[in-house]
Amino acid sequence: MIPIRCHAVAGVALSEIDGQIKMLLMYRVKGGFWCHVAGTVEAGETGWQTIIREFGEETGITVCELYTAHYLEQFYESGPNVVTVVPVFVVYCPPNQGVQLNDEHTAYRWCTLAEAKVLVSFPGQQALYDHVWRYFVESRPSTLMRVVLG
């Protein structure tokens, strides 16, 4: 038997950077790869509260417009022999959003879809970015996907 666990959430930030929509990628110290924001749900938190906290901690971004991406990252981890499922959120940021990294990352880039897909190491990341681009950049999501903050 392979257990399924869901203990973390992830988020993709979008911002108009110098007139062009881009997504935020950061270079992660642990593992040495490019990624989006992610983090573990702490006791008493909902998933959406976790991603807001993680955006603040990892990037300094204050989340004002949050959506559920209607997408689950999923992958097998051989060490603990589990399938991990991670709900994904999308954050719309103001134009030319600033970023202040914490010590979990050493660099960041605002990327077009093509640039992001070249930087990342995992096929699941590429599929996620395709999904986000299609449903959050090329079109606007349903208002039913918006997370009411508060």
Rank of each mutant, 00 (worst) to 15 (best):
M26G: 03
G31D: 03
K117T: 11
V37N: 09
S15V: 01
L149W: 02
H131F: 15
M26E: 12
Q100L: 01
V132N: 15
R109E: 05
A38W: 11
V82C: 02
E57A: 14
R134Q: 14
E115T: 01
W34I: 07
F122D: 07
V41L: 08
V137C: 07
R5L: 09
V29L: 12
V147T: 06
I51H: 11
T68R: 14
G60V: 12
E58D: 09
T59S: 00
E138C: 08
G47V: 11
R5T: 05
L119G: 00
A127H: 09
T106N: 05
A43C: 04
Q125D: 04
D18A: 10
K30G: 11
S15I: 10
I21D: 00
V12F: 03
E104P: 07
P87F: 15
V148A: 15
A127N: 08
M1A: 13
Y108S: 04
G98D: 01
C35M: 13
Y27D: 02
V91Y: 04
N96S: 09
Y108R: 10
L144I: 05
Q74L: 09
L128V: 04
E58H: 08
L14V: 05
T59R: 05
F33L: 00
S78L: 11
Q20M: 11
E16C: 11
V132I: 15
T46I: 01
G60K: 11
P87M: 15
F122S: 10
Q74I: 04
G39M: 12
T40Y: 15
E58A: 08
F122A: 07
T84N: 08
S121Q: 03
G47K: 10
R5W: 06
D103I: 06
S121G: 06
V85H: 08
R140E: 15
Y67S: 00
F55R: 12
Q49R: 14
T62M: 12
V37K: 09
E16M: 13
G124R: 02
F136R: 04
D18E: 09
V90T: 12
P87A: 15
L25A: 05
V118G: 02
P123T: 02
I21A: 06
I21V: 01
A13Q: 07
P141D: 15
F55N: 04
A38T: 05
T62R: 09
T40S: 13
E42Q: 03
G31E: 07
D130E: 12
H7Y: 07
G19D: 08
